[in-house]
C-alpha cells in the first residue's frame, strides 16, 4: 500500500451503482479494494485480500457488517478488517466518505 500517497481522497463510485451486499471491486494503482454497501447504505472499504490466503473479499457473502471470504469462509469485520472467531489476522481497512451520492476513499 506504500504505492498510494498519503492523506488523499479519491472518488471511486456513486452510492447508487453499488448494490446492497454485493461489493464492488476497485483497483487503485496496484491495490485492489472492495467497497461494501450495507442494508442501511453505510459504505465500508477493505483491501480485497483475505488475511488467510488472499481470497477476494469482494466475492464474499456480506452479512450485516461482516464479509465471509469465498475461499475458506473466514469471517472478516467490515469496520477494521479483523478476522472473527477462532481465526487470527487482519486485512487493511480504508476510511470512506459520501458526498452528493459520490463515494470517496480516504487513502493512507
Amino acid at each position: 500500500m506504500n504505492s498510494i500517497n498519503k492523506q488523499k481522497e479519491i472518488a471511486v463510485a456513486t452510492v447508487d451503482e453499488i448494490a446492497v451486499d454485493i461489493p464492488k471491486e476497485v483497483i487503485i494503482e496496484e491495490t485492489s479494494i472492495a467497497i461494501f454497501k450495507t442494508k442501511d447504505s453505510t459504505i465500508f472499504a477493505l483491501e480485497n485480500k483475505c488475511p488467510h490466503k488472499g481470497g477476494p473479499l469482494s466475492q464474499g457473502i456480506v452479512s450485516g457488517e461482516h464479509v465471509f471470504c469465498p475461499l475458506h469462509d473466514w469471517k472478516i469485520s467490515l469496520h477494521d478488517g479483523r478476522a472473527q472467531g477462532a481465526d487470527e489476522g487482519c486485512t487493511a481497512s480504508y476510511g470512506t466518505r459520501v458526498e452528493n451520492n459520490t463515494v470517496y476513499l480516504l487513502l493512507k
Binding site: N5, I10, A11, A13, K24, E25, V26, I27, I28
Partner: peptide, 8 residues
C-alpha cells in the same frame, strides 16, 4: 465490473 481508478 472491475473498476480501475487513476490517482491524480
Amino acid at each position: 465490473e472491475q473498476r480501475k481508478v487513476e490517482l491524480v
